[in-house]
Nucleic acid binder design. Structure first.
Lengths: 160, 160
DNA sequence: TATGGATAGTTGAAAATGTCAACGATTTGT
DNA sequence: ACAAATCGTTGACATTTTCAACTATCCATA
């Protein structure tokens, strides 16, 4: 990020409106960096026919935490019906399987297949490179600090 | 934010899935904090019949920087046609006026009216309170640091 | 100074997303 | 055993995004 990443069509540039007070607004800063990052992320993931959403689901399915769809919905701040569609697609592609929960048979536990794990490993690399691009303007330490602060804001000092 | 803000229906809680590796992913962290913040922001702004979008436009219109609609679109990462709709509504409500650009008569400069300024002043207070809620888990210093890092990631060290 | 190509705003249509209410299957509390 | 709640799913509906035109205007250059 920061000023023109490459000779590309020009990603972002210092703008006269940066001086406006909205540049101090947290919601705006989050929205803008999120928007910029989404473009790069989705571009990087498109090679694997994934988007940010399906990528997230695949990560959770591969986490070993045996998440149910409901837990995924809560955690990803998505409507349960959206999880259905995402899991449907990943399952159709053989990257993920649904299994009835052991204690609660209403719930469906989503788990990554071997193929899902392998695709995820590659996708994660590409996503990592995209993240590096987004945080181009920050030092490694600053990048880590930014992520730590975001985690703390979300889950408090105890968060991962 | 952080664990349950109040006795409310429960806003957010430490989740078992926090342990998943996606909690280290910048895009996810931005999306999640942005989503959580949007809820609070829009709730706070609804008192003034504003949403995050129209609030942003109103701020820029009130900035004294005489932004054109195109500049707003670029800066807010929105399609120009969305700016049209937002300005239409604000103009209908008498909070903002359009004027032809002096050098370029194709461009429309959007400026806040007196009424717009007054509404904005109050809305900004409410939005500020919402932001405080979102950053509940951070100290004042940490909150400032977070915002500084976001700005730096977007515009480099020179940014506002 | 005329002419071609770009750009600002606007409109409207199409596609993608978000929201929400209902339903069957299952669990939980009493 | 029964009532109330919950999980996944479906489908309807609303909102948002994306994109291709179109007019008016600007700019470059012959």
């Amino acid at each position: 990020m920061t000023i023109e990443t490459q000779g590309e069509p020009r990603t972002e540039q210092a703008h006269k409106l940066v001086a406006a007070s909205i540049s101090q607004d947290l919601g705006f800063l989050l929205a803008k960096l999120h928007a910029a990052g989404s473009v790069l992320n989705n571009r990087a993931l498109s090679e694997f026919d994934l988007k940010e959403r399906s990528y997230s689901v695949l990560i959770l399915a591969n986490s070993g935490l045996e998440p149910t769809q409901r837990e995924m919905a809560d955690f990803l701040s998505l409507d349960p019906s959206q999880i259905v569609a995402l899991v449907d697609e990943l399952e159709k592609r053989g990257l993920v399987v649904r299994a009835a929960g052991k204690q609660d048979r209403r719930a469906k536990i989503v788990t990554a297949t071997g193929k899902g794990s392998r695709v995820l490993a590659q996708a994660a690399e590409a996503a990592g490179r995209a993240e590096t691009d987004v945080l181009d303007g920050l030092s490694g330490e600053e990048a880590a600090q930014l992520k730590a602060l975001l985690r703390k804001a979300l889950w408090g000092a105890s968060g991962a």
